[in-house]
Computed example of a mutant assay.
Amino acid sequence: MKGLAILGVAGTLLAMAFFAYRENDRTHAVLRDLARVERDIGRTRESLAMLEAEWAFLNRPERLRDLAAMTWEQLRLEPMRPSAFGRISEVPYADELPDPVGADMTGGVLLAGERP
């Protein structure tokens, strides 16, 4: 009986050691993945900072003004002025909009090539 108890304790001890080893291995794998993800996040943040700096550099007002002047013949870009913007009170709302042309739908739908 004493031998059976020792064998049971030894088996339990081996099972617990195997479980502890497996959990330790899983923990190390997760920590490696976490370190990789953190490195990727760091690289992505660096790339984002570089892209934001490039964007700010490319959108300098004097550079955009020079580009507009160089492409005047093709694009006819005008400098922005406060008068180019409207007021919010000038925006029509849905109930203030006029009816679209042909809003009377009682006559049916015309097919391509048909005349009313």
Rank of each mutant, 00 (worst) to 15 (best):
M1D: 06
M1I: 07
L7R: 02
L7F: 14
G8N: 09
V9K: 09
V9H: 12
A10Y: 13
G11H: 03
G11F: 15
L13F: 15
L13G: 06
L14R: 05
L14D: 03
F18V: 05
A20Y: 15
A20R: 05
A20P: 00
A20W: 14
Y21M: 09
E23R: 08
N24Y: 13
T27E: 13
H28C: 04
H28S: 11
H28E: 13
A29I: 08
V30K: 04
V30F: 11
L31M: 09
L31G: 00
R32N: 12
D33P: 00
L34V: 01
A35T: 01
A35C: 01
V37D: 04
R39F: 14
D40E: 11
G42T: 04
G42A: 08
G42C: 01
R43M: 10
R43Y: 11
T44P: 00
E46F: 07
S47L: 13
L48I: 11
L48F: 09
A49G: 03
A49V: 05
M50G: 01
L51R: 03
E52N: 04
A53R: 10
A53K: 06
W55R: 00
A56I: 03
F57H: 08
F57S: 12
F57D: 09
P61V: 02
R63N: 05
R63F: 15
D66L: 13
L67T: 00
L67C: 03
A68Y: 10
A69V: 13
W72M: 09
Q74W: 13
R76M: 04
R76C: 06
L77G: 02
L77A: 11
L77K: 07
E78H: 09
P79F: 15
M80F: 14
R81F: 12
P82T: 02
S83K: 06
S83Y: 12
A84S: 05
F85G: 02
G86P: 01
G86W: 12
R87H: 14
R87T: 02
I88H: 06
I88Y: 07
I88V: 12
S89D: 11
S89W: 08
E90P: 00
E90H: 11
P92S: 04
A94R: 11
A94N: 05
D95G: 02
E96C: 02
E96A: 14
L97T: 06
D99P: 00
V101Y: 01
G102M: 08
G102S: 07
A103H: 12
D104S: 03
M105L: 14
T106Q: 05
T106F: 10
G108W: 14
V109E: 05
V109H: 04
V109G: 07
L110D: 01
A112Q: 03
A112N: 03
A112M: 06
A112P: 01
E114A: 09
R115V: 12
